[in-house]
Amino acid sequence: MRSDRNSRAPLALKIAAALGLLFLHLPILLIFVYAFTTEDRSFQWPPPGYTLKWFAVTWNRPDVWEALGLSVRVAAISTVVALVLGTLCAAAVSRTKFFGRETISLLVILPIALPGIITGIALRSAFNLADIPFSFWTIILGHATFCVVVVYNNAVARFRRTSGSLIEASMDLGADGFQTFRHVVLPNIGTALLAGGMLAFALSFDEVIVTTFTAGQQATLPIWMLEELVRPRQRPVTNVVAMVVVLVTFLPILAAYYLTRDGDQIAGSGK
């Protein structure tokens, strides 16, 4: 039973929570305003005027398109690699108990638990030692490594809620292992994999610290932005790119949230 006094939040708590949320969101919204500013030399506030000109300018910039294209290709391939490796690992860890199971979880989480600079410099010096030239594929080696954990986490959580008896039932009814995977396992873990894949894509699309170490001359979109941040040349174009990046990353995050939200209603969860 709950008394009235306790079901209402104290005013101070409400204000503190609201201020905290504003602190988290206002800075991002500010970028949207700056994308329309007519000022192109400084970060002047309030903007002297508003214009749509910079969208056209950005649209016609080949370097932005190249960076965007590279980022999308890297993120897509890293996501596929992470999906395969993460699902295999999650299936093995959640299906069976074996020696060293905890160690495997730790190994998967390590690339994201240790600061990115350590992963980055470790990979770079290893590439140097092994005489591997920096290329598109060295970026992917780095990205896929830390994307595995996102897929793994999502898949493990779903496997735990999926009953093993479903698989046994499928086998008893005469399906072989591949049919069972295709018609029983995959539909059950599908949304979790989709969500994990989207988050992995968002993670790779945004990664900059490891990428600065594993990319040679190519610039992914974050590397392009980093260069603009360190040596601003085209502030208005950067503003527009930043706004587009915010919008593009919000979609997969929202989608991933809605996909995993109803995860409790999985077939066989009420065993």
């Binding site: 800075p27 500010l30 970028i31 506030w45 988050l199 945004d206 900059v208 974050p222 990353t249």
Partner: peptide, 15 residues
């Protein structure tokens, strides 16, 4: 905010 772009967040604060 957790998942949105790290560089964009830093950039916003530069502004």
């Amino acid at each position: 905010p957790l998942w949105s772009s790290y560089l964009v967040k830093v950039y916003a604060w530069k502004l």
